[in-house]
């Protein structure tokens, strides 16, 4: 009991320290490195709170993917920004907001069951055993569908930043990797393992923590590793197959939702078929999310197709 309390207090102190360090870091690279550490600590925090799904997402997307995106951005910024200075007025403003937020959070009566009892009550009709997946894919599937489209739209926004003559070309820089060097070897060894992990995470999401967003991140990482190791080439934007893969998951989700209008309501699944449909959506969504996230990391097209 005391040991776990001590761990939690230590964790909280670490999270705050790393957060302050990230904001106050003198160079951009250091700030991003600390931000990634912050994300990982936060993921442990979620696990300590019993929210393993959130922890997985925070670790994979918050720390991993966002970290890679930030590292890429930091590497591309030629001029280093001015080191942070202490400004009194914004500092006071931030303190006031923080104190106000703190007071508001403390004023909530804890612990609140929230909607947990209601979710448990309807879990049997949702088609899956993991309450988080039930909420994301069934009870509030509409949110998840739109979010998956937000990702695709963000990618279109990134592509739109390409030069006019390269807009449908190949993203990412050409990789020159020596065959049988360390990176190349890893690029051949790790993808099969990563693939298994990704498929496991999406499959287990039906019963236990896991799901499309986390699995998609793992698969994206696998693909990116293969690209960085020179084993695979990023596809050109103009190729229809890849654009089809991008929209496959959201399209299957939307079609399933529209199918619901035929017998009940938009976005509804018949309880008997719910499991099959949700798994079909999860797997196609994982594929689309993986392609979208990886292509977001690769950035705008910069080479001819």
């Amino acid at each position: 009991m005391i040991a776990s309390a001590a761990f939690d207090i230590l964790l909280c102190l670490l999270i705050v320290t790393v957060a302050v360090g990230s904001v106050a870091a003198r160079d951009l690279f250091g700030a991003v490195a600390l931000y990634i550490v912050y994300g990982l600590l936060l993921a442990i925090g979620w696990v300590r709170l019993g929210a393993v799904d959130v922890g997985l997402a925070e670790g994979a997307i918050g720390a991993g993917l966002t970290g890679v995106l930030l590292l890429g951005a930091a590497a591309r910024l030629k001029a280093a920004p001015d080191p942070p200075r202490l400004r009194i007025v914004p500092l006071l403003l931030c303190l006031a907001v923080s104190l106000g937020l703190g007071a508001a959070v403390l004023s909530l009566s804890v612990p609140q069951p929230g909607l947990v009892p209601l979710v448990q009550e309807n879990l049997a009709a949702s088609g899956v055993g993991n309450p988080v997946t039930a909420v994301l894919l069934n009870f509030r599937g509409w949110d998840t569908l739109v979010e998956s489209v937000v990702l695709v739209v963000a990618l279109v926004g990134v592509w739109a930043l390409a030069p006019d003559d390269l807009w449908d070309g190949r993203p990412g820089a050409a990789q020159r990797v020596k065959r049988d060097a360390v990176l190349n070897t890893f690029g051949r060894l790790l993808p099969p393992v990563g693939l298994m992990v990704g498929i496991y995470i999406v499959w287990i999401g039906a019963y236990a923590p896991g799901g499309a967003f986390q699995a998609g991140t793992v698969l994206a990482a696998v693909w990116l590793l293969a690209i960085m190791a020179g084993v695979a080439e990023p596809p050109p934007v103009r190729r229809p197959l890849w654009r089809a893969l991008l929209v496959l998951g959201p399209a299957v989700f939307l079609l399933a939702g529209l199918h619901g209008t035929l017998w009940g309501a938009f976005m509804s699944f018949a309880p008997a078929k719910a499991k099959t449909m949700i798994m079909a959506i999860e797997f196609t969504l994982t594929l689309s999310i993986a392609v979208t996230l990886a292509m977001l990391v690769l950035g705008r097209p910069r080479r001819p197709a």
Partner: peptide
């Protein structure tokens, strides 16, 4: 007169437009 269709239709068109390009 289902409100759902009013969001589903442009959403479907958005996905189709990603595929169709120009």
């Amino acid at each position: 007169a289902e409100p759902g269709l009013l969001v589903a239709l442009p959403l479907a068109a958005c996905l189709a437009a990603v595929f169709l390009g120009r």
